[in-house]
């Protein structure tokens, strides 16, 4: 695997996936908890404090993933 996504084990909590996003040291981290809950950490710059922390349920994560991957189709 190309090392663009870092994978870190968080003992007792779950697994963390780190990904840099363009410019200024900004990055995204996804914490996948063992109970299925995810937390999306958004860092707009290289700073220490996250710009936003978004808790997502298992279902919401799948939905978001589908939207991001372009495989979500809305049917009426």
């Amino acid at each position: 695997m190309d090392p663009v996504v870092g994978v870190v084990e968080l003992y007792g909590i779950g697994t963390r996936y780190d990904m840099p996003v363009a410019g200024g040291g900004g990055r995204l981290s996804v914490v996948a908890r063992r109970d299925g809950q995810r937390e999306l950490y958004v860092f707009a710059d290289a700073g220490e404090e996250p710009t936003a922390v978004v808790p997502l349920s298992d279902e919401q994560s799948r939905l978001l993933a589908a939207v991001l991957a372009g495989t979500y189709f809305h049917t009426r």
């Binding site: 084990e9 968080l10 003992y11 007792g12 909590i13 937390e39 950490y41 404090e49």
Partner: peptide, 23 residues
């Protein structure tokens, strides 16, 4: 563990080490 979640530090570099120490 609760403290790390509440202080929004799960994405920090030192957090895996802290959790490792607990283990």
């Amino acid at each position: 563990t609760k403290l790390l979640v509440e202080t929004r530090r799960l994405a920090n570099a030192e957090t895996p080490i802290l959790l490792g120490v607990i283990v």
